[in-house]
Design a protein around this nucleic acid. Structure first.
Length: 1198
RNA sequence: GGGCGAGUGGCGAAAUGGCAGACGCAAUAGCCUUAGGAGCUAUCGAGAGAAAUCUUGUGAGGGUUCGACUCCCUCCUCGCCCACCA
């Protein structure tokens, strides 16, 4: 027998597989396909590590298994080779990244091959290969052409060390994901991919991925962060404007186009609105109309005139005649006398030809706005522009709802009459409580209203400071909210019509929602904190009611279901224990104090307190709160009704009686919150509670008390914590012994330390006609009334440019005349130029900007000199479509052929790390969905099944890192024990998805197992020529023993099912168990072969070698085990012929008997009852019940 | 603060309603050996006992069940992800 030499055999078989092309997948094969994918690595200088090994080995087991199951199996590999390390190395050493990349790839490939992974290297790809990135660029252009790639200047995450912009997803805890440097905000011109356009599709698509782990789907859903609510506009208060005069156009009337709508809107905002029905019909005279308006309308310096079309001419005439107004808005007003549709309009031309005294007109109003419709079929844009110029006013272009601003609703005109701040809220039901507004520092409003904001310098300073803060600082936990009031600026709450102040504060984020909020301090924790700090008004508009939750269901359901079972509490007198602690407690309060008892109508406690000379008021003396008969929701309602009528602030002490502790957590919170909302700041109240621990025992004996199970039994620390969260602090605490009933009474004295916002659902109050609505209903009703219901996503657009060298150049050209022009397909790829210096400029420009020769090009459209885009793509670009390329990696005409895509797509199983959930996995779904919409790929979702893996920690249980010195190098394990041992031990460590730590000592266990298998097989094969063997039984046999047969089928079943369920760790155990069990049995060489087939996916080399040894002994021609087929098990043989049956008495194990498998209950019972232990136990008892589980157990209940 | 997941020997872990600790590591004893970082045999949760055996035991408490590591409720601890998202 030769010694097992893994290093030698492994090299031999790796060579064999390669030479015989064992792993090549055939496109469009007749066989059914399986596409097994593992995330391709970044080939770093350090080589591949354990983190790579884990998914790769798992993928390899599954791939080899599927090949043997007869599937055409695609298991490809490639290199995600763009990225910073190669570039940083280039900066340091001056070596071109492509050189380092190539040598790193060579090394990584050597490693992978040494692990015996069955990748199809014919399909190898490399993202930095121009043949590959040509298509990355081409795909980018598809996004660009559909308007999903756009350029914008914005505040982006900037890593000062890597000197590049980062995507939102690349910022972890305010630090650069790659280098850990604190991320800054920087204003830069960037390319974005409009992933937000796919937010809903990406979210919806998750529903069609039943084979994805719930955690992954949930994380993506949370990242997309859909929330429903309403967009509501808060008008900006215009102190100098009181009324509007709306002048209709030629041939129109106050009842036409947008006028009725606008009138209504403005009146709702509290303005006076006049819409004169001017005479003249289709051929009006401007002068006649001016006279009419003068006579019928009030015009003064607090009036704004909006003139639509011809009405604009009338407006100007009014001013010309000396009428002073606040502001004039002209919408689609003709001026030049020629019309877009070429039609003649006599009266209009006549009026214009009279000319205007613009000098005089300008003096009559402070502001002029001229608004043009970009789609106007009557008045050309030039008219509006010229008017604005003559009037020295503002010219605004907009697409009207209907051409010539003739729509029934023209929001843009409204916005100019009454400018507003748009907010997004999930709680429109609390709008009556919106007592101020906050805009983010980035909000454009601030700049737009520079002239109105009287403390602009202060505001500006605050904004600068906020910008300078790293994201980390700005969002740091426990950080106090700061802000500055925008003095001189007020907004109008559309519900209350009240003026509210407007603030700028960095607790409002510029990039979420509309960048502005309505602040409802009474019902939002953040607003509450801010309002408290700056002394802003707090108005309660939600009433805490017990039985309404988010889903509008009644919390007390279970409770009420069992209400009829509730027992009446027995009357009992004031016991000694109670007396004692009340006496103790009363020493602390004065006889003159006002005391209120909430809760018990029976008044046990208050009776006693009164008897000691105190005056106690009761909630309701006539009716008992502790009547459990009718359900408990009632009591809370009663309690709330009572506390509504009285001023809780006027009491010095409030007892909230025992009844409170019967409620579950939510109800308890609400009751206390209710008290809290009314309590004065330094009030005290006492809460007497019972600990039911002992009481339960008492009740257990009495079946009538069963319903107590539904009570919440409070513990002291629970109450303490609960009250703390509601803003109370324990002042005193008294606990007494158990009373006769087994109850323990506890007295708590709390002091209110702070008020808190009530953020839960309830009933609407203080909100006019909405009062009494459930908040869930009010959200819809009030959202529709004051704004419109909308959806918001947390997901932000993907910053898709990097200011670095080593990435795919963005294939666009900037031309002075033609703007941005895509590089024509025939000119792709845009190759990365050779440079001398890779150093990023640090100014936000890519190093490519310094290469003048490359930069300068000609415009593909007009052939004039133009400049290339200098930004490169992020590392995620290449991996966003790579699995598609594997299907057709050598295609020169297309990124992939549709027929091949149809055959291979989608990926059946995708192995990878959890850390890519919101990065690569989301990005690539986005690309795939987009390409699907373009008809470029065949499958809507790219991956049918995703299987994430846990990380491998070092032997010390810490994350492997060079600095900790706990890195286990897989190559060294290969060197010392061989790849098969490495693979099997890695799988053996624990469940694939669990975090495990590598134990250096444990490896030998697997090595020993493989050694034993080696010896076992060799001894049997060589037995006829060998004298000394481990066991006399070790020789080739004609027939397996029954034990072997059954063990073999059990093993086939176990291994097959384990691979299908990714439970590799228990597979390894099963092999060991099998070997331990049958190593000294008679076994045939056929069975040994079968064992080797099963072992093959896990330990491919040793299994091939032993298979060859067995084959040679039989003079069989050997082939690779990959070409054999996976065995099928006989279910009948997977169980042993005899089984041990455990017998129990009342669930306690008394012993076991051995019976033939499948024995009936009668047979087993007959044997069990005669057992000595059973006989003894049965003396004087009868068997009440027999539980029999075939082949397993018998339980006698006596 | 929110979400998700996990707690089982000295260690990695198995068992997902039916004998808790399979399998492996470490440890202990013995055999073999010039030797052992090789191999083989046996023991190996804790407590009691010479032993058979008994008791107890899966983070804590409670519940459901003939029977609970497993299901339900409450809590504690740890890990991961997100985090001023209106």
């Amino acid at each position: 027998m030769q010694k097992y030499n893994p290093q030698k055999t492994e090299l031999k078989w790796q060579k064999f597989w390669e030479e015989n092309k064992i792993f090549s997948a055939i496109d469009n094969s007749k066989k059914q396909k399986k596409y097994i994918l593992v995330e391709f690595p970044y080939p770093s200088g350090a080589g591949l590590h354990m983190g790579h090994l884990r998914p790769y080995v798992a993928g390899d087991v599954v791939a080899r298994f599927n090949r043997m199951k007869g599937f055409e199996t695609l298991f490809p590999m490639g290199w995600d080779a763009f990225g910073l390390p190669a570039e940083n190395y280039a900066i340091k050493m001056g070596v071109h990244p492509s050189i380092t990349t190539a040598s790193n790839i060579k090394n990584a490939k050597r490693q992978i091959q040494s692990w015996g992974l069955s990748f199809d290297w014919n399909r190898e790809i490399n993202t930095t290969d121009p043949e590959y990135y040509k298509w990355t660029q081409w795909l980018f252009l598809q996004f660009y052409k559909k308007g999903l790639a756009y350029e914008a200047t914005g505040l982006i995450n900037w890593c000062p060390k890597d000197k590049t912009g980062l995507a939102n997803e690349e910022v972890i805890d305010g630090k650069c994901e790659r280098c850990g440097t604190a991320v800054q905000k920087k204003e830069l011109r960037q390319w974005y991919l409009r992933i937000t356009a796919y937010a809903e599709k990406l979210l919806e698509g998750l529903k069609n991925l039943p084979e994805w782990p719930g955690a992954v789907k949930l994380q993506q859903a949370n990242w997309i962060g859909k929330s429903t609510g309403a967009e509501i506009k808060f008008g900006i208060h215009q102190p100098s404007v009181k009324r509007f005069v709306l002048l209709h156009g030629r041939g129109s009337s106050p009842e036409e186009s947008f006028l009725p709508w606008l009138k209504n809107k403005l009146e709702k905002l509290g303005y006076e609105v006049q819409v004169p029905a001017m005479p003249g019909g289709d051929e009006p005279s401007d002068l006649e109309q001016v006279d009419f308006v003068k006579k019928n309308c009030k015009l003064d310096e607090s009036t704004v005139i909006l003139g639509h079309s011809f009405g604009g001419i009338v407006a100007l005439r009014l001013l010309e005649q000396g009428i002073k107004v606040n502001k004039v808005i002209l919408a689609s007003t003709p001026y030049l006398g020629r019309f877009s549709d070429g039609k003649a309009r006599k009266s209009v031309v006549e009026a214009i030809q009279r000319g205007f005294d613009f000098k005089k007109i300008k003096a009559q109003a402070q502001n002029f706005i001229s608004i043009s419709d970009e789609t106007d079929h009557v008045v050309p844009l030039a008219d509006g522009q010229s008017l604005a110029k003559e009037l020295n006013g503002l010219w605004l272009k907009q697409v009207a709802t209907k051409s010539h601003f003739d729509g029934n609703e023209e929001p843009f005109l409204l916005e100019n009459c009454a400018p507003s701040i748009k907010v997004f809220t999930t709680r429109p039901d609390t709008i009556f409580g919106a007592t101020y507004m906050v805009v983010a520092p980035e909000h454009p409003l601030i700049q737009n209203y520079e002239s109105r904001i009287t403390n602009y310098d202060e505001v500006k300073k605050y904004i600068e400071k906020a910008k300078g803060k790293a994201e980390m600082e700005r969002t740091a936990e426990g950080k106090e909210k700061t802000g500055v009031k925008l003095k001189g600026l007020f907004a109008i709450n559309p519900a209350t019509k009240e003026e509210v102040t407007v603030w700028v504060a960095d607790y409002v984020l510029g990039h979420y929602g509309t960048g502005a909020i309505m602040a409802v301090p009474a019902h939002d924790e953040r607003d509450f904190e801010f309002a408290t700090r700056y002394n802003l008004p707090i108005k309660q508009v939600v009433y805490p009611v017990v039985n309404i939750d988010e889903k509008n269901t009644i919390t007390l359901k279970t409770y009420e279901d069992h209400a009829d079972k509730y027992i009446q509490r027995t009357t009992r007198g004031v016991d000694g224990v109670f007396k004692q602690w009340v006496d103790d407690f009363l020493k602390k309060i004065k006889k003159t104090d006002k005391i209120l008892e909430l809760g018990s109508g029976r008044g046990l406690d208050s009776d006693y307190i009164e008897s000691r000379g105190y005056k106690v008021e009761r909630t309701d003396a006539a009716e008992s709160f502790i009547s459990y008969q009718k359900g408990l929701g009632k009591e809370i309602k009663k309690l709330n009704a009572f506390t509504d009528k009285i001023d809780l602030n006027s009491y010095d002490l409030i007892f909230a009686n025992k009844v409170l502790l019967h409620f579950n957590r939510e109800q308890f919170k609400l009751v206390v919150a209710k008290i809290n909302l009314g309590l004065r700041d330094n009030g005290i109240f006492a809460l007497s509670l019972m600990d039911y621990k002992k009481a339960t025992e008492h009740f257990v004996k009495d079946p009538k008390m069963e319903s107590l199970r539904y009570f919440k039994f409070w513990k002291k620390n629970e109450v303490e914590e609960e009250l703390k969260s509601l803003g109370f602090e324990i002042v005193d605490y008294m606990e007494k012994g158990f009373n006769d009933d087994g109850f323990q009474d506890i007295l708590f004295v709390f002091k209110k330390t702070k008020s808190v916002a009530f953020v839960d659902y309830g009933l609407v109050i203080n909100s006019d006609k909405f009062n009494g609505l459930k908040t869930v209903e009010a959200i819809i009703k009030m959202g529709e009334e004051f704004g419109k219901l909308t959806v918001q996503y947390k997901l932000r657009d993907w910053v898709f440019s990097r200011q670095r060298y080593w990435g795919e150049p963005i294939p666009l050209i900037h031309c002075e005349d033609c703007g941005i022009v895509p590089v024509p397909e025939k000119d792709l790829p845009v190759m990365l130029p050779k440079v001398k210096k890779y150093e990023p400029t640090g100014t936000g420009e890519s190093p490519l900007a310094n290469i003048k020769k490359w930069l300068k090009t000609t415009c593909p459209k007009c052939k004039k000199t133009a400049w290339r885009e200098t930004n490169t793509m992020p590392q995620w670009a290449g991996s966003s479509w790579y699995w598609l390329r594997y299907a057709d990696s050598k295609n020169k005409q297309k990124f992939a052929d549709m027929k091949k895509l149809k055959y291979w797509q989608p990926v059946d199983i995708y192995f990878g790390g959890m850390e890519h959930t919101t990065l690569h996995l989301l990005y690539s779904r986005f690309w795939n969905l987009f390409l699907y919409d373009q008809g470029l790929v065949s499958s809507k979702e790219p991956y049918t099944k995703r299987h994430p893996h846990g990380i491998i920690l070092g032997p010390d249980g810490e994350k492997m890192s060079k600095s900790r010195g706990n890195v286990v190098n897989p190559d060294e394990v290969v060197k010392s024990h061989g790849a098969d041992t490495l693979r099997m031990y890695e799988l053996f460590l624990g469940p694939h998805e669990a975090t495990v730590s590598w134990n250096d000592k444990g490896v030998v266990g697997v090595k020993r197992f493989l050694d034993r298998v080696w010896t076992w097989v060799n001894e049997i094969v060589e037995a006829p020529h060998q004298k000394i063997r481990k066991s006399e039984n070790r020789k080739p046999e004609i027939k397996d023993t029954e034990k072997v047969q059954r063990a073999m089928h059990k093993l086939i079943k176990k291994i097959t099912e384990d691979i299908e369920n990714f439970r590799f760790n228990t597979s390894i155990s099963a092999f060991m168990e099998f070997h331990n069990e049958i190593k000294d049995e008679f076994i045939t060489l056929e069975s040994i072969t079968q064992f080797l087939i099963l072992l093959h996916p896990f330990a491919p080399h040793i299994s091939e070698e032993l298979h060859q040894i067995v084959g040679k002994s039989q003079n069989r021609k050997i082939k690779s085990l990959q070409q054999t087929s996976w065995p099928i098990f006989d279910p009948a043989l997977t169980v042993s012929s005899t089984v041990e049956i455990v017998f129990q008495i009342n669930g306690k194990v008394k012993g076991k008997i051995t019976v033939p498998a499948g024995s009936s209950q009668e047979v087993v019972q007959a044997q069990v009852v005669v057992m000595e232990v059973v006989k003894q136990a049965l003396v004087g008892e009868t068997i009440k019940r027999v539980v029999f589980v075939p082949n397993r157990l018998m339980n006698l209940v006596i």
